[in-house]
Design a protein around this nucleic acid. Sequence first.
DNA 1: TGCTGTGAAGTGCTTCACAGCG
DNA 2: CGCTGTGAAGCACTTCACAGCA
Lengths: 214, 214
Amino acid sequence: MIRQPKSKHIPRATIQRLATYIQVLESFARDGVEVISSNPLAEACGVNGSQVRKDLAYFGEFGIRGVGYQVTSLIAAIKSSLGVDREWRMALIGVGNLGKALLNHAEFRTRNFNIVGIFDCDPFKIGEIVHGREVHCTQDLKAIVEERGIEIGIIATPPERAQRAAQHLVDAGLTSILNFTAARVKVPEQVQLDYVDFFHHLYSLAFRHEQART
Amino acid sequence: MIRQPKSKHIPRATIQRLATYIQVLESFARDGVEVISSNPLAEACGVNGSQVRKDLAYFGEFGIRGVGYQVTSLIAAIKSSLGVDREWRMALIGVGNLGKALLNHAEFRTRNFNIVGIFDCDPFKIGEIVHGREVHCTQDLKAIVEERGIEIGIIATPPERAQRAAQHLVDAGLTSILNFTAARVKVPEQVQLDYVDFFHHLYSLAFRHEQART
DNA sequence: TGCTGTGAAGTGCTTCACAGCG
DNA sequence: CGCTGTGAAGCACTTCACAGCA
């Protein structure tokens, strides 16, 4: 079930915060909290109370005036709003250190984002079994994407091969790509592309560290 | 050498883009490009030309009117502006799958962000040698941070131990922390804290994927 | 009464447009 | 003449403040 947004444009920042709200709400739920109002939730997420209410208002009215939000139903409402209340199948390109670490990462499974196809262009790796999954040749990507209902592609190759991997993913018909390499890649406009780039964060931390001295 | 910003406040977004400019400029430099003007650089980074010029203007005047920017000297200027033209030493807490993958990650070294101390609270891991470095007890953090000139802490524990790890890092006097777990942690206000959170990106991709269908 | 949902106000980043210099 | 550097305008997100409902 996908809940339709009430209004047209939703800020990218709102979507990111909704992901945070889920994390924090789940931790409240584990602690036995049943109802929470916007201010303590905002506090725990490091944002403003109105921000929380406005973010939620993009998708509907989930609260009870004078009371707050029911934790478990709010989690469900946000997940449904984002479309993460179902399985998402992903393909991984690049079975090196990084790729293997991602395959090892248990949380993908718990959050219902499953890597169901793994690919490499190194002939020595093809056919190898990594974490119970066979490494396929990148040439077979399109066929396997269609066969297994894959919707998201992950790039975990060395940086210099990232562009080629992106092209393979696009050619296989994927429109959502998460790039774990630092290399910027070009894709058609309609393809959604995100970067997980440690160095953005490290550079930013380094800068703020220096700035704090003065 | 740390270049002082011309003006007081610099947007967080600017810092993130500067990191991208470095990546892209380095790739231009590898391709033998010696001079580049703001528009093609912006194009390659997926932003507006004025944005590039304004971002750079926070730190000084690096270009030549009518010509553009010299690639190598611009790289040096940005690195110096951010304070990443020197070594940064980091401590890693949590030597599980994720922590080991980070230790394996060669790019930390090439970018001069070095993990020089690794810690875990599991007595079975303490003393073990991982990638040539001995795993220390978390209790020894403060002493080793001081001894080795560590300035940045990395959290790579299981999520439920992230808060405790953060507390150890703060107690050891660190003011810059990068959290690779999804768990939100509380730290004093003056501590700089960033999250590397895949699920933000995956949730965002999933949402945009659904949205694109309609 | 207390907290949500929301128009209005505020703030800050982005883009424009062009003066100024090489 | 071309491209940088930059004030001014535009736009988008955030915060305020309060009406409205449980």
